[in-house]
């Protein structure tokens, strides 16, 4: 068995008396989509922040690509190859779609301290940016200011910027949020194909998408992972049914 790309080993995080994460262990294997689900307030956001590096766990460790990244910040984890998309689109709003994508490509390439050459004429960066934008279907909107984009287009751009990073793993926080049926239907096959380039840790509320995409599902309730397994096993799991899914979601 190969070693997991992302290995979260027993992390805990408390805020005062609230235990937001309690001994959470989670792995992401190469080539898989691992979905993390749980009701509101289960601690998904806190967990994501610890994986991305915004928060430091009180105990436990996080391993990525064979090294301990527990003490690294978000910048270092991004450089190590963790590509993140945000639950609420987090983009440079006054810039164009293309500029946002070029920024992603620039972050990947490094060499940011270049003061003279026009970055929007850098053929190598432009190529990466254009490729990512056309993959998500934003090729026609390259010149649009992000502030003028629709909500759905911003979600697409989030994914495109992550693509420009050609990360080793994706950390996607509700990529389907607010997309509506049609948008979700378009994004689902795209993520399906993406797993072979880099595995995805997917936090998602849309259960149709989760069960369509996930190789494995972990269920987080009150900061604890109560079950991890294949979609079918999760569907049958009595504890999960009781805690979260409810019968109608399973049919």
């Amino acid at each position: 068995m190969t070693s997991p790309l992302l290995d979260i080993r027993g992390i805990s995080k408390s805020f005062g008396a609230i235990r937001a994460s309690e001994d959470v262990s989670l792995t992401l294997m190469r080539g898989e989509i691992h979905a993390l689900i749980g009701p509101n307030g289960a601690g998904k956001s806190t967990l994501i922040k610890q994986i991305a590096g915004n928060l430091k766990p009180d105990s436990g460790s996080i391993w990525f690509d064979g090294r301990d990244v527990t003490s690294l910040d978000t910048v270092a984890r991004a450089q190590a190859g963790l590509g993140r998309t945000f639950q609420i689109s987090s983009l440079a709003m006054e810039m164009s779609v293309l500029q946002n994508a070029v920024l992603g490509a620039l972050g990947k390439r490094g060499r940011v301290m270049r003061f003279w050459r026009d970055v929007m004429r850098d053929a190598a960066l432009l190529q990466v940016a254009h490729a990512a934008l056309s993959e998500v279907g934003l090729a026609a909107a390259v010149g649009t200011r992000v502030a003028d984009l629709s909500h759905g287009q911003r979600r697409q751009l989030e994914v495109a910027v992550a693509l420009t990073q050609s990360p080793k793993a994706f950390l996607m926080d509700e990529p389907m949020a607010g997309l509506g049926g049609e948008g979700t239907a378009r994004l689902t096959p795209f993520l399906d194909g993406l797993r072979h380039r880099a595995p995805i840790l997917l936090v998602e509320h849309d259960m149709d998408a989760v069960f369509a995409l996930a190789d494995r599902i972990s269920v987080l309730v009150y900061g604890r992972i109560i079950a991890t397994g294949k979609p079918d096993a999760i569907r049958q799991n009595a504890e999960v049914r009781e805690a979260y899914l409810g019968d109608e979601a399973l049919t």
């Binding site: 978000t74 910048v75 991004a78 920024l103 620039l106 990947k108 910027v161």
Partner: peptide, 9 residues
């Protein structure tokens, strides 16, 4: 946050 997420400090 966006800049940090693409690996730039």
């Amino acid at each position: 946050e966006r800049v940090m997420a693409v690996g730039i400090a």
